[in-house]
């Protein structure tokens, strides 16, 4: 009740906050760049990992499942800290943007392995046999029989994982990447309107998530036809 009254009494002032719209756009572009880079890298890493996990030799399978287990059982924030603050101690100095991209790809790749693997396993054994009967080689079967078909079943899971991930990239602000979330503290220090700043930021993320949902659904329809 107190809270409701305080909200009513609080004079919202969005003018100064919105006047900084250029900063928001810059931050948004950084978040988009990071997300797209991570999607591309994470997908490549995920498909590679899933292929090894499904068809590779025992030791390589073990390597991939260890990677997946380590990433999935530790926070992204700590992974960012290890790469950005930890690696320079070993003589590998990275700027914050590079460190962020590496950490994000490394992180998303592990989650993608699991989704893609489930997709590969959804292809019935009989189809692989049919490919072999047609004289296709292993890589050819993978490319023509497994990959495209399994994409169809994994795209819905991948797109919700990607959207969820895009929102999670806000953590990179903690290693001083000037992404959308970091923009909030810049605008806050100019305007001192914390509440309004974070409401605006929340709104931008919300719109971004909805737009991505539409883009993924549209892409799915374009590639596979029908409804996702």
């Amino acid at each position: 009740m107190h809270l409701a009254r305080a909200v009513v009494r609080y004079g919202f002032q969005f003018r100064d906050v919105l006047a900084a719209w250029e900063l928001f756009v810059e931050g948004l572009l950084v978040t988009l760049t990071l997300s797209v880079a991570a999607f591309a890298g994470g997908l490549a890493l995920g498909v590679l990992g899933a292929a090894i996990r499904t068809y590779g030799p025992g030791w390589a399978k073990f390597l991939v499942s260890s990677y997946v287990a380590v990433v999935r059982n530790t926070p992204l924030l700590v992974q960012l800290f290890v790469i950005f603050f930890g690696l320079p101690a070993l003589g590998i100095r990275l700027d914050s943007m590079t460190a962020a991209i590496i950490a994000l790809i490394f992180n998303l790749g592990a989650y993608t392995v699991e989704i893609v693997r489930a997709g590969f396993e959804s292809i019935p054994e009989g189809q692989l046999e049919a490919g072999r009967a047609l004289g296709l080689s292993g890589p050819q079967i993978f490319r023509h029989v497994v990959l495209f078909q399994s994409m169809r079943s994994m795209v819905p899971a991948l797109s919700s994982q990607f959207i969820f991930f895009m929102l999670g990239t806000a953590a990179v602000s903690q290693i001083a990447v000037t992404d959308l979330f970091h923009t909030a503290s810049l605008v806050q220090s100019r305007t001192f309107r914390d509440f309004e700043v974070y409401i605006v930021i929340a709104g931008i993320y919300l719109v971004l998530a909805q737009v991505m949902r539409l883009v993924f659904a549209g892409g799915y329809r374009l590639a596979f036809g029908g409804r996702s």
């Binding site: 929102l167 999670g168 806000a170 953590a171 602000s173 979330f181 909030a184 806050q188 914390d194 509440f195 974070y198 409401i199 930021i201 929340a202 993320y205 919300l206 998530a209 909805q210």
Partner: peptide
């Protein structure tokens, strides 16, 4: 549709 970090900052600083 809103990052967890934004929720935390809204509730704490906001």
């Amino acid at each position: 549709g809103i990052p967890l970090l934004v929720w935390l900052f809204l509730l704490y600083f906001g």
